[in-house]
């Protein structure tokens, strides 16, 4: 097992990529600390993860043999993040891997000058600053132990632009930048920081993801049409499955990638090639 005995923290773990990642880590022998806001956010036009969904992810992980700690925590709240990290360190002795997965795709769907101050701030606060807060809380102990892996789930929106998604694109580009800067900060202490950039991921029923549907809604196009557009835009002519992204995260979390830091691993079916 590639993550045997490792303690892994995943944010946004109630569903979607977070759930798929947690499950993949559990299958590789990791123990898990699962964070999710488990509440809706004013300003986000779609429902976020729920306590029931987080408990379900936890149950699936336990079935795979993992010890699981759950925490309802909003990554916009530094104290909440710190508390969850402290509990995880008490329970598991340490955190070996942190996966910054939590993020929102909307409010979006309008030109940049139509975004209001609150919408802009919300997007940056969750998608960029949330990742920074987790790194801030886990990085010190990882550095002290001279081992650790941080994986930031960015997006192809961290590499190219998308029309009418300025906030999201800006935040995800910044996540890529944060990844590179943090990687340099921690390189002397052997703590690695990498980013994964998924393309368009299927809203899988088991994972209960809904990002693709919400992006389609923000763009005011039918989901099947949006899917078709992206299948055509990704040279391998398929949507990405949540497990494909989880596999990349597991690789970057594991010691197999011990010389890889500051890298950006795309899981986009070739979307960003051209």
């Amino acid at each position: 097992m590639r993550l045997h005995g490792k303690s892994v923290l995943v944010t946004g773990a109630a569903r979607g990529l977070g759930r798929a990642t947690a499950l993949a880590c559990a299958a590789e022998g990791a123990d898990l600390t699962l964070l999710d806001i488990c509440a809706d956010l004013p300003g986000v036009p779609y429902p976020l993860g729920t306590p029931g969904q987080l408990a379900h992810t936890a149950a699936l992980c336990r079935e795979a043999g993992a010890a699981v700690l759950t925490a309802e925590a909003d990554i916009r709240d530094l104290r909440a993040v710190r508390e969850a990290v402290t509990r995880a360190e008490d329970r598991f002795g340490r955190i070996d891997v942190a996966v910054n997965n939590a993020g929102i795709a909307a409010p979006s769907g309008k030109p940049v000058h139509e975004i209001d101050e609150d919408e802009w701030s919300l997007m940056i606060d969750v998608d960029l600053s949330g990742a920074w807060r987790v790194i801030r809380e886990v990085g010190k102990a990882m550095s002290a132990r001279r081992t650790g892996s941080i994986v930031n789930v960015a997006s192809t929106a961290g590499l190219v632009g998308y029309r009418h998604f300025a906030g999201y694109v800006a935040a995800k580009h910044a996540v890529v930048g944060l990844t590179k800067a943090a990687a340099l900060d921690y390189a002397p202490t052997k703590v690695r920081v990498n980013a994964v950039c998924p393309g368009s991921v299927r809203d899988d029923a088991q994972a209960e993801g809904r990002m693709l549907a919400e992006i389609a809604r923000a763009l005011e196009v039918p989901v099947h049409e949006h899917e078709k557009t992206f299948v055509e835009a990704q040279p391998m002519n398929a949507l990405i499955e949540p497990e494909d992204v989880a596999a990349a995260v597991v690789f970057l979390a594991s010691d197999e990638s011990r010389q890889i830091t500051g890298s950006v691993l795309t899981v986009d079916g070739g979307f960003s090639i051209r």
């Binding site: 005995g5 149950a59 336990r62 079935e63 043999g65 010890a67 699981v68 002795g93």
Partner: peptide, 27 residues
């Protein structure tokens, strides 16, 4: 810390969980 292990105590997965707890150092 209470951990629910969704299998009987004799299951190999339960054994793995025990071994994991017994291998995890504490401060």
């Amino acid at each position: 810390w209470i951990e629910d292990v969704p299998v009987p105590a004799t299951d190999p997965l339960a054994e793995r969980r025990r071994a994991a707890e017994l291998a995890r150092p504490a401060e």
